[in-house]
Computed example of a mutant assay.
Amino acid sequence: MSKKIAAVLTDLFEDVEYTSPAQAFKEAGHEVITIEKEAGKQVTGKHEKTKVTINKSIDDVSADDFDALFIPGGFSPDQLRADERFVKFVSAFIEAGKPIFAICHGPQLFIQTGKLKGRTVTGFTSIRPDLANAGATVKDEEVVVDDQIVTSRTPDDLPAFNREALKLL
């Protein structure tokens, strides 16, 4: 069955951490809807190879509209977590028990939610202490699956990340 996946991103996302999972999701028949502050805006990856046109504004969506959430890494998650609307959006997915896929710096958005206590996750090496300080058990593994949350560390982990995300879908 086709699922509707919310992808939250803004400028300076890690190009391949968006393109690889998005392509895997689409090839499996799922729909990826990009979300940022402004619909119709074009955002650019940090390597300036990937440009993505935003489908929806964060003001026009609800977690109820989607089956899963996807958070690519790069500098995008750190920018988005400063905006309470994105924090509430992510929190709603956690509370609803819906699948969430976050790679590299993506789990930074979890920190702001205050909902990491008792969770097991991974992320880029520099954010692991922050994840632990937020109450999570942090592992240094290519992919960590904790109930509905799938996390990975770097672009090298994309094959495992995509595999586990697709399994949850």
Rank of each mutant, 00 (worst) to 15 (best):
I100T: 04
F89T: 04
S76A: 11
A28V: 10
V61N: 09
S76R: 11
G97C: 10
E27V: 03
F110E: 08
E142L: 02
V8F: 13
F161I: 05
K98E: 06
Q148I: 05
L69V: 09
L80W: 09
A132Y: 02
E95I: 02
S91P: 03
A28Q: 12
R81M: 14
M1Y: 08
F25W: 05
T122N: 01
D146G: 02
F93V: 08
T44E: 12
P21F: 08
V16P: 00
T151V: 09
T50G: 03
K167N: 14
I103W: 03
T151H: 06
F66M: 03
V43P: 01
Q79S: 15
D157W: 03
V150E: 05
S62Q: 12
P155T: 13
F86W: 04
Q108I: 02
T137M: 11
V144Y: 08
T10M: 11
L158P: 07
A160I: 06
G40Q: 05
K139R: 14
T125R: 05
K98W: 10
T10E: 11
S126M: 11
G106S: 03
A68S: 14
F89V: 04
L80E: 09
Q148D: 09
N55T: 13
D67G: 07
Q148R: 08
Q79W: 14
T44N: 03
D130K: 04
G114Y: 09
I94E: 06
F70L: 10
E142F: 03
P72T: 10
G29C: 04
A7W: 10
I54V: 15
P159N: 11
Y18T: 09
I35C: 05
I35T: 07
K115C: 00
A134M: 07
G97D: 14
G123M: 09
V61S: 09
F70P: 04
R163E: 15
V52F: 13
G74W: 14
G97E: 14
V144A: 01
I103T: 10
T151A: 05
K26T: 15
F25I: 02
D140K: 14
P21H: 10
P107M: 07
G45H: 12
E14Q: 15
F13G: 01
S76V: 12
K51G: 02
F89M: 05
T10K: 07
A134D: 12
L12M: 11
V52Y: 11
I149T: 03
A68H: 12
K56G: 07
F86I: 08
K4C: 01
L80T: 08
L116Q: 00
R128A: 05
L169Q: 05
G106A: 07
I111T: 01
T137K: 15
I103Q: 00
E164T: 04
L131Y: 08
F70H: 02
L168K: 12
Q108C: 00
F161D: 04
M1T: 13
E142N: 14
N55D: 15
K49T: 15
L80F: 12
E36I: 00
I94R: 01
S20E: 15
N133V: 03
S76T: 14
S126I: 08
A165G: 14
E36M: 06
T122S: 00
F124V: 13
I71D: 12
D147T: 10
S152P: 01
K88F: 05
R119N: 04
A132K: 13
A160P: 06
L168F: 08
T34Y: 13
K98N: 06
S62W: 08
L131F: 09
K26Y: 04
